[in-house]
């Protein structure tokens, strides 16, 4: 077996290579199905200092019907052509990215149950030698109570994954370190 290529940090100067195109934050096209949402994610370090332009967030999510636009999702459902399940933005000077997307549908699991609506997030930044992975769930969604992945998270830390809705904006802080550190996953 070959040894895999190691991860290295994205560094601080990736903008012109990866995030020069801000339209990658607009995942829901005009005709996208489902509930349109704006999702604001703010990245802060162990001192609570936001990552100013030197972090990049990537989202990967199902469409409003819970369908991933990918060959491994073999269900006979057509993926929403007006929706792109991938989003990518750099943080602004305040450590924040705002994505325009739709609330994903629950995804069927092998046992026939549905996951809670969630968005998969990859976090890249100066100072992260390998990217971090977390999920955004939606506070108040009744499916959160039975979601298999959320149940793997100690109850007192689950709130770090729950976006809150305020003034028409869903928001979640991604705390890399410290009190209320965000739950990150090993896949």
């Amino acid at each position: 077996m070959r040894i895999a290529t190691a991860s290295q940090t994205v560094g601080p100067f990736f903008n012109f290579g990866l995030t020069a195109n801000p339209s990658l934050g607009k995942m829901a096209g005009d005709g996208a199905q489902g509930e349109r949402i704006r999702l604001s994610l703010r990245v802060v370090d162990g001192d609570g200092i936001p990552a100013p332009g030197d972090a990049m967030l990537e989202l990967w999510q199902a469409d409003a019907n819970g369908k991933y636009n990918h060959p491994e999702d073999t269900r006979p459902v057509t993926a929403d052509a007006a929706f792109c399940g991938f989003g990518r933005l750099e943080t602004d000077g305040n450590g924040t990215c705002v994505f325009e997307t739709v609330k994903p549908g629950g995804v069927p699991q092998p046992d026939g149950t549905l996951t809670a609506p969630h968005i998969n997030v990859s976090i890249f930044a100066r100072g992260l030698l390998k990217h971090l992975v977390t999920r955004v769930y939606f506070s108040g969604d009744p499916a959160n109570d039975t979601d298999a992945v959320l149940q793997l998270v100690p109850e007192e830390r689950r709130s770090t994954l729950l976006a809150q809705q305020e003034n028409g904006l869903w928001h979640l802080e991604i705390r890399l370190q410290g009190a209320d550190e965000t739950v990150f996953f090993e896949l």
Binding site: Q177, E181, T182, V183, F185
Partner: peptide
């Protein structure tokens, strides 16, 4: 100040 200090949670 950017490395998480809590262990990652392994998920399927």
């Amino acid at each position: 100040r950017r490395a998480p200090l809590q262990p990652l949670i392994r998920i399927p």
